[in-house]
Design a protein around this nucleic acid. Structure first.
Lengths: 142, 142
DNA sequence: CCTTGCTCCTATAGCCGCTATAGGAATTAG
DNA sequence: CTAATTCCTATAGCGGCTATAGGAGCAAGG
């Protein structure tokens, strides 16, 4: 069967990647420029669709563009070692773990703030006080 | 005692906010434009320093600029109700909790990926497989 | 007094990963 | 045949900085 013509709108619906984002991915070279119809519309195929879904999934998992480029390149050489994929994922896992730790510490601080707030005046508000109390925390948070 | 002249560099060291970032905060109106010396250097005072520390702490806690503007405005009206500060912090706390949840789910998926990887070829790599397996997750992640 | 090297100044561009807008052209539905 | 929808390109903007270029001021050593 001949590949059924997939417009950008349909590719968007079927991949979960928004139309302008698909064009953006093409511009930055994450997605190969697809064929065009007579009227200059993009015509995607199943390969493109798979690539888009792959990208979306990786983005949902928080991989950045550089990582995704590497992972995509690997899928194109299925015989090569998966050591790199493993180490990208492992590094990312450690980053996520650190973010969870930081956010958990942060949640503690916010909980203390909100619980300590007596709902009175700003001058005795724990939320404001903690923010103004500058020497009790050093961490960077993202 | 007269306020000791604080240069931008010293303000940076003492607040933990980088020099270009201080200038940036001034430009976007988060920090009032300070007095200038004869040679056109910024001269900060203890008030500015406190404001910078407040901003840094709030940024570390992940508050965005709009929230920080509101919180700063509140500190200037200490008689007013702290209901708003409380609700900003509460809303932020809920956001953080959601981020923790998402990241925890994500960590699980990444752990499964990394553990499942047999360190062999890409064609049988679990990391790549999970990414290419498009229909097993719907969440948005930030 | 003069040079060296540091800090400071402004203005502008770039980062990431999109998202929005303007101003059209082509296709599709009724 | 028209009206609505989809598509096209190009460009600017978002948040929250960070980097760069091209100077000017200032403090310390020779």
């Amino acid at each position: 069967m001949p590949a059924y013509e997939i417009t950008i709108g349909e590719a968007s619906r079927r991949s979960g990647v928004k139309v302008p984002t698909i064009r953006f991915y093409e511009r930055i070279g994450l997605l190969p420029a697809p064929a065009r119809s007579e009227g200059n519309r993009r015509q995607f195929d199943d390969n493109d669709l798979n690539r888009l879904k792959f990208i979306r999934h990786a983005r949902e998992l928080g991989f950045d563009m550089a990582d995704i480029r590497e992972l995509l390149a690997m899928t194109e050489e299925p015989q090569s070692s998966c050591h790199d994929a493993d180490s990208i994922a492992g590094r990312h896992l450690r980053e996520i773990e650190q973010r969870i730790e930081r956010l958990t510490a942060l949640r503690g601080e916010l909980q203390r703030m909100v619980e300590g707030c007596g709902h009175g005046q700003v001058c005795e508000c724990r939320v404001i006080q903690i923010l103004a109390d500058h020497d009790n925390c050093r961490s960077d948070v993202h």
